[in-house]
Amino acid sequence: MAERKIRILVAKPGLDGHDRGAKIIARALRDGGFEVIYTGLHQTPEMIAEAAIQEDVDAIGLSILSGAHNTLFPAVMKELKARGGGDIVMFGGGIIPEEDIAELQGQGVRGLFTPGASTDEIVAWVRANVTPRD
């Protein structure tokens, strides 16, 4: 039996409505052969964690352009842990200063992409870093 497709939730937490990046990444991942669920805008950390569990995803990509990344990444991870999804791979992108990247990676965000990253690079990263959860 063929290995099942990797499932990825692309999510937009917080209030910011800039979804150009999130939509492009979602499409590129889909074209790259992954199963992609897009939450739409204005999601709370609870809503994102809930959707991740419901949809049984292997990874979550957060798109944040509002400067609220230091609040929102940890908040989503906390909600995931509370629901038994602590092993779901977290990655994300947005306007995230260098020193914040190091800090977030220390907290367990596996991949962070900033403006100028190509979709090919992100698809390759997911292929290398995400495997189906048991």
Binding site: G14, L15, D16, S66, G67, A68, T71, L72, A75
Partner: peptide, 21 residues
Amino acid sequence: MPTLMGYDADHPRALGEVGRE
């Protein structure tokens, strides 16, 4: 963002976003 989306600064949905953008 909270002002733009119609939330006061003390609203839970404003968390992390007050005065940022």
